[in-house]
Write a protein that binds this DNA or RNA. Structure first.
Lengths: 259, 259
DNA sequence: CAGTACCGTGTATGCTCTACGCAGTAGCGC
DNA sequence: GCGCTACTGCGTAGAGCATACACGGTACTG
């Protein structure tokens, strides 16, 4: 919108933030001199996500995405400077915009619960994105920053400092991602992993035989890892790591707030 | 092909866990029929880690590691079935064995504090390993399981169930990794990232100009992101996200325990 | 001593990202 | 209306990657 006369957008921080990012933020009014563009950054990202959802992130190559769009491989490089940039935008699109707070979620705690749960569900539909969320440095993409904004809003009335708010946000999102990274690997490759998981208890039993990992051995002989494969079929009455961890984390914040 | 005489170690769980893993656990008594082996799994992993430490994980290729050892690329495949296996073992070696509890750390809380801090410090010396810790499914390598064992030990006297202990462990390790993944990206590429970080505050100011991310905008105008680049030079009185998050998480566990 | 299981290696395949140059297009200043 | 020129998509090509496979040599087993 407003372009400051002397301070051009990308002029102060030279080449620090890629052009595709500016497009993603809608900050790029293209003068459009040459031929009409045949593709869209959105379209490219969408196609790439479709491939990732269907066949996993490792199936996403520049040539594969281009084929999906009926374009040549190199055409994509007119929209994205590098594959990493594309991946960054894929992750942003995968997490999507934050889900608006329901009306009955008043107070920081319900708001944060909503935030964490909604984020978890967004990522659950794009499992490949989980390890990549934090892989591109501090968040710079629209949706990622919108999520951050929502968590800051949730904590707005707590009187916490910004450093503290960000730290709480980090604690909760860390929980989401670490729990999901386990779930993800179980679901992404159900065939292989279920089989592997079925043997996981046995494996742990074998490697703890020598008694050098006593606490783990106790857990194993107690049967803590016996039903992992059953869980995959019947997730009904399974212990919910995520909910438990989330409640502990929020309890900790509540205690800090003197509640 | 492979010939499985009787009940070989890997016969119960067929092909579920790779042979190199058995070697890492010291469960492989090699009959050693052919010529003497010129390399060691340990040596390969050590060389690979040296490359990763010096030049980053992306510099680790099979041929690069082989060159480091004065061997041919394909020689490595006599010790490791796939590059992914090598990476898994690299991560295990990178986190190292858990640091023994100091004598004065009695009770679950000091023990968990020690656990989290020690893990953080281990990973700090091998930043490339951070995104990879959870990338290979549930932990199966010796050191990773030893860390898990230590956390279970820390919680042994709390009366928590194993599910709950594991969930607490996940909460804390999630915090460690998510905080580190930010730190990592700042340090790994100091030149580029410091420059990028210097512009981060300005960038956030620009994209929040339209007022659509009000909480974030408030934080930005409040100067919460202004000193990020200064932090790199002078980390003295910087707010410690990790310590703050850890205390909140442990407070939450304490509350659950009725303490 | 023969058999054979295993070693390290060279070659080859197919994939990846991306640098570069080309020919064609469409808006701008005249 | 007419170049100028910035911009388009594309073909080619190069470097690097993981790894499948076949080969000749080695040292233990029967």
């Amino acid at each position: 919108m407003e372009s400051d006369p002397p301070a051009d957008a990308s002029a102060d921080s030279p080449a620090a933030f890629p052009a595709s990012l500016e497009v993603a933020w809608g900050l790029r009014d293209r003068p459009h001199k040459g031929p009409k563009r045949g593709l869209t950054l959105d379209g490219i990202v969408t196609a790439a996500i479709a491939v990732a959802d269907a066949e996993g992130i490792e199936a996403v190559s520049m040539s594969r995405v281009a084929k999906e769009l009926g374009a040549s491989t190199m055409a994509l490089y007119r929209y994205v400077a590098t594959k990493d940039e594309l991946v960054m935008l894929m992750v942003d699109a995968a997490i999507g915009p934050p889900v608006p707070l329901p009306a009955d979620a008043t107070g920081w705690r319900p708001a944060l619960e909503h935030w964490a749960t909604a984020m978890r569900e967004s990522l659950l539909t794009h499992l490949w994105a989980i390890p990549l969320v934090a892989a591109h440095g501090p968040p710079v993409t629209p949706n990622q920053l919108a999520w951050l904004d929502q968590s800051l809003q949730a904590l707005a009335d707590t009187g916490l400092g910004y450093d503290e708010k960000v730290a709480v946000s980090l604690l909760v999102s860390g929980l989401v991602r670490s729990e999901l990274s386990l779930v993800a690997l179980m679901r992404q490759d159900p065939a292989g992993t279920a089989q592997r998981l079925a043997g996981y208890g046995k494996f742990l039993a074998r490697v703890t035989e020598n008694g050098r990992l006593p606490a783990l051995r106790a857990a194993v002989t107690d049967g803590a890892f016996d039903d992992l494969d059953a869980d995959l079929a019947d997730e009904a009455d399974e212990f919910d790591d995520f909910a438990f961890g989330l409640q502990r984390a929020l309890d900790g914040v509540a205690a800090y707030l003197g509640e």
